[in-house]
Each structure stands twice: as C-alpha cells, then as structure tokens.
C-alpha cells in the first residue's frame, strides 16, 4: 500500500498514470490477485496445497516402495537411504505410506467440508432470508449443536456405523456446518435489505431465485474462506479418528493410523511417530495460511 503510493508520487507521468488507471479500473478479481500475490505466506501456503495435490495424484510414481508390501527382513529399521523415513513393525516403507496417506487426508478434507458447506448454506440462507420462527428454531438448533462436545458425538456415530472413509466424511460434514450457517445467515440479514433484492422482487423473481441467484453469490466470499480453513480442521479430525483406530482402517495407509503404530512402538522407533505427524502439520499449516491469505485479499476488513 505504502510502496505503490510512493512510486506513484515520484512518477513524472503522474497525470497520465491516473487517467490510465481510471480507464482500466481494476476489477475485483485483479485486486484480489494483486493483494494475494503480495502476501508471501499465503502464496507459500497455496504452493504447498498445490504440491500436496500433485503428490496424491502421482503417488504411484513418487512412492519408492509399495506402501502395503510387508517385509519381515526389514522390520522397524531407522531411516536410511533405501527407506528415507524408516520402516514400521511389518517392515513397510513409511515414506511410501505417508505419500499414499495424503490421498485420504485430501479427499476427506474436501468432501467433509463440501457437505458441511452445503448444509450450512441451506440452513443459513433460509434462516436469514425468512427470519421469524424458522430462524429462531434453526439458530436454537445451532446453539445446541455447538454445546455438544462434537468429538464425542463423532466418535459415537462412527462407532455405530462401520468405520470407513465415506462414513468419516459424512459424519465430519454433518457435525461441522454450524459456523457456515451463522456466517451465511449474517450475510443474508444485511444483503436482503439491499436495493438489488427489491429490484429482483419487483421483477417477479421467486423467493428461491432471489436466495440462490441474487443474494447467495454476494455472500460467498466468507463462505469460501471458512471452507478453506475448514479443510484444515477436517484433516485434523480425520487423523485423530484414524489414530484412535476408528477412522480409516489398516492396511489402507492414513497419517493417523501410521501414528497409532508409532505410539505402540514409541520407546524403540521414533521415526514412525515423527514423519506422518509432520505431514499433517504441514498440510494443516498450508490450508490455514492459504485461507487467511484469501480472506485478507478478498477484503482486509473481513472478520471470520
């Protein structure tokens, strides 16, 4: 901000510059990219997220070993050149398992947050648009959901279902939509009073059309930010569930269930505990940086 103002004032072409600027007024999109590129941490976060996607898509080409290959001759080996992250209690290569584990984390993060976002948007939009008793009931419901220790509820439901990746996605999704609902409701409360809504109504648009075609697109930026931050949360919950043995089941590799083996062998094999946790840490950090970066670039005043 300060820099660009400075360079403008020293420019001998200031008048020219101004008119030029006026002619091609920066679009919101350009402004967003301009701010985002200046935020170094956010760019780093974005690059890491991109890299994680590449790793999970190309896992078979990157992984040095078969992640499920049991090798009794190389049990609990410390890191070496042939096994950079060491091996586990069945002689499986930890690096390969961590690489394949990224697939689980990314897909759970995306699908769970997708479910939560859709539920949150529907409840929040209807609640904010219609108000009245419907709003009271939904917001009361949100308050109640927020005072249940969510992790307990997730555990209980998962244990009743068969533990598996799809059930985890669904359960994390239906227990984490409350924040989105509140955000969307707050946006709707202010947006529904604006002129463009009145105009749409005067043209005879139906309620549903006003909600989803006119108001919702204007309320999407905070939702986008909370979704990116939500992925980080979902990755953490999934790894905790798998760590407790009720998430993704072995032999399928997930970062959480590699850590379970790490805990069982904690006195003799530190490497099993260190590397998968590092992967979770980097992933969550990257999504957080990216989310905060997007928020600051959309609107620096936005508070989520």
């Amino acid at each position: 901000m300060g820099e660009s103002a400075n360079s403008l004032s020293v420019s001998p072409f200031l008048p020219l510059f101004r008119s030029f600027n006026y002619m091609t007024q920066p679009t919101l999109k350009n402004l967003f990219w301009h701010r985002f590129k200046k935020n170094r941490l956010a760019v780093i976060g974005g690059i890491i997220v991109f890299g994680l996607f590449a790793v999970s898509i190309f896992a078979p080409f990157i992984a040095p070993h078969n992640p499920d290959a049991i090798n009794v001759k190389h049990v609990l080996e410390s890191p070496s050149f042939s096994h950079l992250f060491g091996t586990d209690d069945l002689g499986r290569d930890i690096l390969s398992r961590v690489i394949y584990g990224s697939r689980i984390s990314l897909s759970v993060g995306f699908v769970a947050v997708g479910i939560a976002t859709v539920i949150g948007i529907i409840f929040g939009a209807l609640s904010g648009y219609y108000g009245g008793w419907f709003d009271t009931v939904i917001m009361r419901f949100v308050d109640i959901m927020l005072s249940i220790p969510t992790f307990f509820l997730i555990l209980a439901v998962i244990a009743m279902l068969e533990p598996g990746i799809w059930n985890i996605m669904i359960v994390i999704g239906i227990t984490s939509w409350m924040g989105v609902a509140r955000l969307v409701r707050a946006e709707f409360l202010s947006l529904k009073e604006r002129e463009f809504v009145l105009a749409a109504r005067a043209l005879g648009a139906s309620d549903l059309r006003i909600i989803f075609r006119h108001i919702l697109p204007n309320a999407m930026s905070p939702v986008l930010v909370s979704a990116v931050l939500g992925i980080a949360g979902a990755v953490l919950v999934e790894s905790a569930l798998s760590f407790l043995g009720i998430g993704v089941q072995p032999p399928t590799a997930s970062w959480g269930n590699i850590l379970t083996i790490g805990k069982d062998n904690i006195e003799i094999a530190w490497w099993i505990s260190v590397f998968p946790g590092l992967a979770i840490f980097v992933t969550v950090l990257a999504y957080n940086l990216l989310g905060e970066g997007i928020r600051d670039s959309i609107d620096p005043r936005l508070k989520i």
């Binding site: 980080a232 850590l259 790490g262 006195e267 530190w270 505990s273 946790g277 840490f281 969550v284 957080n288």
Partner: peptide
C-alpha cells in the same frame, strides 16, 4: 500461534513423550 493452530496435539503429545519420557 500459526504453528500452534496447525500442530495436531496428539502428535505433539507423542513428540513430547519421546523427548521427556523416552
């Protein structure tokens, strides 16, 4: 604070167990 947000606490627990316990 950013690091604190991102560290999975159960992993941090394992690390501290390795350091202070083992």
């Amino acid at each position: 604070v950013f690091i604190g947000f991102a560290i999975p606490t159960f992993w941090f627990a394992l690390l501290l167990m390795i350091l202070f316990g083992v």
